[in-house]
Computed example of a mutant assay.
Amino acid sequence: MDLERKHLRLPVESRVFIELEAPVSGTNAPGNIAVCKTLDVSASGLQVALDHELIEQSYLQIGVEPPRTASASAEPFFLAAQVKWCRAGESADQPWLAGLALLPAGQSDIDQWIELISGLE
Rank of each mutant, 00 (worst) to 15 (best):
A43L: 07
S25G: 05
P23K: 09
T27F: 05
L60F: 05
R87V: 12
G106N: 09
G31M: 05
S118D: 10
P76Y: 00
A74K: 15
P104N: 07
A22K: 15
E121P: 00
A49D: 03
S71I: 06
P104F: 00
D2W: 04
A22T: 09
P67T: 02
K6L: 13
P76G: 03
G45Y: 01
T27Y: 05
D111N: 10
Q107N: 12
S118G: 10
P66Y: 08
D2Y: 06
V83E: 03
L54R: 01
F78L: 13
A92P: 01
R87F: 03
R5F: 02
R87G: 02
A43M: 13
L116V: 09
P23V: 09
L46T: 01
H52T: 10
P104W: 00
I55H: 05
H7I: 00
N32K: 14
L46D: 04
A81I: 05
K37F: 14
T27W: 04
P76A: 02
A105Q: 11
P76W: 02
Q61N: 11
F78R: 11
I18Y: 03
L3F: 04
F17G: 08
A70G: 06
C36M: 04
V12C: 14
I110A: 01
W113S: 07
G106H: 07
S73P: 05
S58W: 05
Q112P: 00
V83H: 01
Q47F: 06
H7N: 15
L8T: 13
D93K: 08
Y59E: 13
G89M: 08
Q82W: 00
A70T: 03
A105H: 10
A92T: 05
Q82R: 15
S91K: 08
A70P: 03
A70M: 10
S58G: 07
D2K: 10
Q112C: 08
L20K: 09
H52I: 11
V16H: 00
F17Y: 11
P76H: 01
Q57Y: 10
R87H: 08
S91P: 04
I55Y: 02
L120N: 07
I62V: 15
L10E: 06
P23T: 07
L103C: 12
A81L: 07
I62T: 01
A105S: 14
K84P: 00
L116S: 09
A105E: 13
A88T: 09
Q112K: 13
S71Q: 13
Q94G: 02
L20M: 15
D93E: 15
T69D: 14
D111W: 02
S118M: 08
A101T: 03
E53M: 12
A43W: 00
I110K: 02
P11F: 02
S108R: 03
A98T: 05
A101D: 10
S108A: 09
M1H: 15
V24Q: 11
